[in-house]
Design a protein around this nucleic acid. Structure first.
Length: 568
RNA sequence: CGGGGAGUGGCCUAGUCUGGCUAAGGCGCCUGUUUUGGGAACAGGAGAUCGGGAGUUCGAAUCUCCCCUCCCCGACCA
């Protein structure tokens, strides 16, 4: 490609509303422009990178036996009603009506459609299958943000495995796991596989691939000594055992005027670790009391996963007063109405002599024995791990790293196949519901994640694998016939060798050309100018190290080809 | 949806509090001259319903009301 013919509107200043590094650089570098919140136009350079990322993903999917499909982006309501997700997806699904008044939705994911196609798989002999597509997804995100990192319209590679049983699913899942690791390696992303919450997908288990970055939206708990890694939505830690003094025969109510917080109560003599923090939540309309230790934090996702609730929110102060009889600050699980579910964090199991609110403003109980005094429905893991807590596997102090979710794989099980009635007959002629997995990787998000982790003061630093061009030939003086001819010759040689080369043949000053080339992040630059030409050399600059070496003119093509082929 | 911030030529900003000539500057763009290995200099030029609407006023980018949009922090996800 000749730069003089290329549409690359680079900007000296980033748009004022861009915050994330990748957002700023992708706009400044002329890769994309925002149309409106969560929707970006891909410009030629951006689309090239996007397609290179997609190709890497596609190649790896094909390598594990994936077959590429292309499904519609617009789906009938009935399909989503069959799985029950028309209702549960809520506002995140874009919904519209066609001219006849029929309701349709824009696909946020394609389990339903693939499961319906899977009804045409009839024999166990046809399994396993891996089906995939790279298709646009639409999600009415409550808050699109950080440029391409979180948008409402994006290309996703989604694949689905079909197996006859759980062991088959495990094998398909592992294949994807391996393929994903290879994809991230090719994208030069340091992705950690972590245990994750399955969220709206449901299913038996899931693994997220997380890339550490301050632009991320998830927190990953990571052990520095062993391989334990988990999303805070799932992570656990080993707590020091606590020994409690023997409690009194029954809880003692005591006056606590003005005391509303754990901290204030601690100052009044009750250690936070001996307090019960009672959070009043509304799960699908039902009042639930979630109890964690005073010095612990409730993780809402854990509560949701444990209960299977769809809609979950803290109770309003009015609801709290209506159902518990007191305002926040004096709440507790002791003696609540029978119809109120009490879920208690596992860290509180067996604890006694605790202090908690008495559900009467300005009064608390002490000497509470949880098993004796609280009508516990279940002990469940509700606590969010904090940095520094001990690893559940090896007891080392763990850290929490902000991360971008670059990919997510799920063991779905039979939920969707059952809903769509997708089954096969096994060797004994028995009906077997197809066991499914689903596997997602966002193309644009991965592109942005690379940008987020590959840049310096001069701009982007793409890995060769996804760079918009692999090398740029910078012609210093386009009106100097000798060097221009030599540059064109090099360009032809590189292209003939299959190198994705760009020749900067613009009649512009050196500084402008260098700055643009660095901003858009081309891995290698060959600078051809009269100065070196008279000595028989050109310059080769590595974008990553910014080191320049002189190379003989007759050796430059081979040198570049060798370097790029090694880096691909 | 709750909280915070912001909309001024293609991009970045000043001006708004304290209303007052033709809305200012930089980048970019066009023409010319001189330049030419790190975002050149000079001269000339094009480009703006100051987010939209209503109102107050002799007079509104500036004040009032309504609406729209965008960004950031929280509850969701690739």
């Amino acid at each position: 490609m000749r730069w003089s013919n290329l549409f690359v509107p680079t900007l000296r200043d980033a748009p004022g509303d861009a915050e994330a590094v990748s957002h700023k650089l992708l706009v400044r570098g002329g890769f994309m422009r925002q149309l409106h919140a969560g929707h970006y136009s891909m410009l030629p350079l951006g689309w090239k990178v996007h397609e290179k990322v997609a190709k890497i993903v596609r190649d790896e999917m094909n390598l594990i036996g994936g077959q590429e499909f292309l499904l519609p982006a617009m789906h009938p309501k009935s399909l989503w009603e069959a799985s029950g997700r028309w209702a549960t997806m809520g506002d995140e699904m874009f919904r519209l009506e066609d001219r006849s008044g029929a309701e349709v939705g824009l696909g946020m994911t394609h389990e339903e459609v693939f499961a319906q196609i899977a009804t045409e798989v009839n024999s166990y002999k046809s399994l396993p299958q891996i089906w995939y597509q790279i298709q646009w997804k639409f999600r009415d995100e409550p808050r699109p943000k950080a440029g391409l990192l979180r948008v409402r319209e994006f290309a996703m590679k989604d694949s689905y495995s079909l197996d006859v049983d759980a062991a088959g699913l495990d094998a398909s899942f592992d294949k994807h796991h391996e393929a994903y690791l290879r994809i991230f390696e090719k994208l030069d992303l340091d992705a950690m596989p972590v245990e994750a919450s399955s969220g709206a997908m449901g299913g038996a288990g899931s693994i997220e691939f997380m890339v550490a970055s301050p632009a991320g939206e998830d927190d990953v708990v990571r052990c520095p000594s062993c391989d334990y890694r988990a999303n805070v939505e799932r992570a656990t830690s080993a707590l020091d055992p606590v020994t409690d003094d023997a409690p009194p025969a029954e809880p003692e109510k005591f006056a606590t005027p003005g005391i509303r917080t754990i901290k204030a109560l601690e100052e009044a003599g009750a250690p936070a670790a001996s307090q019960m923090k009672s959070m009043i939540m509304v799960l699908d309309g039902n009042i639930t009391v979630a109890v964690v230790r005073g010095d612990h934090q409730l993780n809402m996702q854990k509560l949701q996963d444990e209960t299977g609730a769809i809609d979950i929110r803290p109770a309003t102060p009015e609801e709290t007063i209506e159902h518990l009889g007191a305002a926040p600050g004096s709440l507790g699980a002791v003696g609540v109405r029978n119809d109120i579910t009490v879920l208690v964090d596992t860290a509180l199991e067996g604890r006694t002599n605790m202090t908690t609110g008495a559900n009467e403003d300005d009064w608390h109980y002490r000497g509470v024995d949880i098993a004796r005094d609280v009508n516990v429905e279940r002990y469940v893991d509700l606590r969010e791990v904090q940095a520094g807590e001990a690893c559940p596997k090896c007891s080392s102090a763990m850290e929490i790293v902000r991360s971008i979710e670059a990919g997510h794989i799920f063991k779905l099980g039979t939920r969707y196949a059952e809903a769509m009635n997708a089954f096969v007959l096994d060797a004994d002629g028995e009906k077997r519901t197809i066991v499914m997995g689903s596997y997602g990787i966002g193309i644009g998000r991965n592109m942005a994640t690379i940008a987020e982790t590959h840049n310096d003061d001069n701009g982007l630093v793409w890995p060769v694998s996804v760079a918009p061009f692999e090398v740029c030939i910078t012609v210093m003086k386009v009106n100097d016939e000798r060097t221009l001819a030599a540059s064109n010759d090099l360009y032809d040689q590189l292209r003939a060798a299959g190198i994705d080369a760009l020749i900067d043949d613009r009649d512009a000053r050196a500084g402008v050309k260098f700055a643009d080339c660095e901003l858009i992040g081309i891995p290698y630059r060959v600078t051809v100018g009269p100065r070196g030409f008279d000595n028989g050399v050109v310059e080769l600059t590595d974008r990553k190290t910014m080191e320049t070496e002189e190379v003989a003119i007759d050796a430059i093509a081979e040198t570049v080809i060798t370097k790029i082929e090694a880096a691909r």
